[in-house]
């Protein structure tokens, strides 16, 4: 967590250096700090920034780049509303306001010496990519690394280049599935959660990190628990409405937690009592 600053709601402009269209409705922006004072920026995998589009508004977006290269700030966004639509219309050289990083991070320390299972759905792979970067940068510190990823269709698969690279490695196991196949798809069809059954991890020495739609996360937790994983070895990333990211606006409350500062990454046993409730 960064130190409380004098004006925590004030955004800092960063410049867009690269735009990559990932799928029909998602894109990745690379940003570099426009001002010198913004350069000591660093983040932990799983954290997010508040991204401001000039005159339009602000949205919480997870950081999807490599934590070892924090000066090139990377965010993958899906166009779902006014702010993300305006963000998608920006061009290279234009600016975006950044506040952050905020929130909790994936338990990469606790995962040392353990099997790591990553379960992700759709855009949920974005906040997990920094974790994968870090896991692979320190590959010898972890046992098995397993990535389960589900997308709606083959066209909706994010980070093709990275997935291909990871899949080619002998020390990472990557399972990909799509809800609906297209003509050229030769891979698995179906939701991501049944893949948990296939994942070869040791239930007494493993840690799971999940990010995706809430319904998918519920089933993923169920499968992992069936496989014998303890509640305290499962971590999930929760999405809630956020206006401030500093615990002042009240929007992101999730039971006793403020998702912006106590989350977005929660240890499952801490929120188990809320996880299956609707409208909480």
């Amino acid at each position: 967590m960064i130190a409380p600053t004098q004006a925590p709601m004030v955004t800092t402009p960063w410049t867009i250096t690269r735009i990559e269209k990932e799928t029909e409705d998602t894109f990745t922006l690379d940003l570099k700090a426009s001002e010198v004072e913004a350069s000591p920026y660093r983040f932990e995998p799983g954290q997010f920034n508040m991204l401001y589009v000039f005159g339009v508004g602000e949205a919480p977006i997870s950081i999807s780049g490599d934590p070892a290269k924090p000066k090139r700030l990377r965010h993958t966004t899906r166009i779902v509303g006014t702010v993300t639509r305006a963000m998608g219309a920006l061009r290279k050289g234009e600016s975006i306001g950044i506040r952050g990083p905020y929130g909790s991070s994936w338990p990469l320390e606790q995962a040392k010496g353990k099997d790591v299972i990553i379960v992700s759905g759709g855009i949920g792979l974005a906040p997990l990519r920094p974790a994968l970067h870090k896991l692979l940068a320190h590959r010898q510190q972890y046992r098995r690394i397993i990535l389960l990823y589900g997308a709606r269709t083959p066209e909706d698969i994010l980070y093709n280049k990275h997935l291909e690279k990871w899949r080619a490695r002998f020390d990472v196991e990557v399972y990909i599935t799509v809800d609906r196949a297209t003509r050229n798809w030769r891979g698995n069809v179906g939701v991501v959660t049944p893949l948990v059954k296939r994942a070869p991890f040791h239930r007494d020495n493993a840690i799971a990190m999940i990010c995706g739609p809430e319904i998918m996360m519920r089933y993923a937790v169920q499968e992992l628990r069936t496989r014998g994983l303890q509640a305290e070895d499962i971590y999930v990333s929760i999405e809630r409405n956020m206006k401030c990211a500093i615990g002042h606006c009240g929007h992101c409350q999730y039971g006793p937690a403020f998702t912006c500062k106590d989350g977005p990454v929660f240890r499952y046993d801490k929120i188990e009592h809320l996880f299956n409730l609707v409208e909480i």
Partner: peptide, 23 residues
Amino acid sequence: FCSTVEDVTDLTGDHAERWRQWD
């Protein structure tokens, strides 16, 4: 204490402001 934010621009679109209000 809950609040929300509102972003406004003037007619030229070159000047923007961010306001916070009770929610």
